[in-house]
Nucleic acid binder design. Structure first.
Lengths: 236, 236
DNA sequence: TCGATGCTACGGTCGGCGCCGAAGCATTGC
DNA sequence: GCAATGCTTCGGCGCCGACCGTAGCATCGA
């Protein structure tokens, strides 16, 4: 069985403020250098190096060396899902802080951000709402599915739902999706293959753009129109 | 936003061997006393008391006092899901240990166990396989759904799928389910409302029974027949 | 009322680990 | 070649927290 010692070891790796900051930063799926990660964690590069070494040897991170840079990224989707579930719990248990937490950076994150490979924040929730309202998808509790009209819509838009393969198991002809409770909106947005496909598509078409050095994304004017026309998304 | 400090705090709570053992033990959804939990963690009651106090004030555990006993249980489904995802990562990263891990207790766990509120192990996977083979359910990657024939089957058996409500969001007429990668079988079993309903039903009908002081369950002779007749499950 | 049981509070010990400064390797560019 | 950059290793400091023994507080049974 999975020894509890192993569970504790993994959890302890995520249980340090500096490492948690690094892991959380990597939640957008990008690969960053040790120096960048040291900066977001607020520690010196040599300390960060130690942390990154531990995370890498444990298998939580994967590194790719390019010249004198070493790019670190989350080793797998499972790692991202773990961080996600911890954040979930953290947001639930978080004491109702004052509106202290609404700095400009935070506002951008609340508006729209990536959650590993899909969209979250008000944009993510609005997208999910629009798809549900139009009957393009259905969700209930733990899971959801793209309806026939949804499949037709995505096909018409050129969104490739098969790009991210499911994680093993049997394939079915249906396209399911995973609802993911949004920590800022406290309502579900779409994750899984569908969420990833929409996110990828939106980046490729220039509908959204990454905000430098953050998980936040900004909706371009073009994207604003496209999202409204394609999905009926209304952004305030 | 969810501060990374908060994430680290939650992860650190699960990142101690003693606390991880306690949390993992509580994954079967039962409520245990401090002394019992101290025993499984291999520490003295007074040390356990301290740990339990921290977990409780953080909101990971809920306590219910009954006379001179204080029963501790996981505070929510979200906590269980977090532990689950950490175990998931741990099992992935676990070094391929020798067949050292096949003690008798471990064998029982591999055969059949509860995973918070649903069934796992060979039994859980066999159940999922049988339902999928018979076309009573479909899964793909992140999610799945009970088919019409499945709904008819559960109705005929008297399994109440509506007993555990979904976690907010919009209700749909469909019954979705969540596949959960089994750490011992490395293949998906059924979680979510459907998994919980099957598990509850099996306990109520006396098809399975808890093994004392463990997450393992044993299939009764009656249950062996019932599971075969009802779902076509073949247990070796 | 009085012991027994379950649990918690306090004080002291000690090991682990997060941190940085300094120094040592790689790689790049001049 | 020689500096500059990115990263790692090493050594030492300091602190947090896990642990237990002892003691104190509730609850139960006789």
């Amino acid at each position: 069985m999975v020894s509890t010692a192993m569970i504790a070891e993994i959890a302890a790796l995520a249980g340090d403020p500096a490492r948690a900051a690094m892991l959380n930063t990597l939640m957008d799926g990008r690969a960053l250098t040790a120096t960048e990660l040291a900066s977001v964690a607020g520690i010196t590069p040599q300390t960060a190096s130690g942390h990154l070494a531990r995370l890498t040897t444990a298998g939580l991170l994967a590194v790719e060396k390019q010249g004198r840079h070493r790019y670190h990224r989350l080793a797998s989707q499972a790692i991202a899902q773990m961080i996600e579930s911890i954040s979930q719990v953290a947001s639930t248990l978080e004491p109702p802080r004052r509106n202290l937490s609404t700095g400009p950076r935070d506002l951008a994150l609340r508006a729209a951000r990536t959650c590993y490979d899909h969209l979250a924040g008000r944009l993510g929730v609005a997208l999910a709402d629009a798809l549900l309202d139009a009957g393009h998808a259905e969700i209930d509790g733990d899971a959801g599915e793209v309806t026939d009209s949804g499949l037709a819509l995505f096909a018409a838009l050129g969104v490739d739902l098969d790009r991210s393969p499911g994680r093993g198991g049997r394939r079915s002809t249906r396209v399911f999706c995973r609802p993911c409770l949004d920590w800022s909106e406290r309502r579900p947005h779409l994750a899984g293959a569908v969420g990833a496909a929409i996110c990828t598509h939106s980046f490729e078409r220039g509908w959204i753009r990454r905000v430098e050095g953050s998980r936040a994304v900004s909706v371009t004017p073009k994207g604003r129109l496209a999202l409204r026309d394609a999905f009926g998304v209304r952004l305030d």
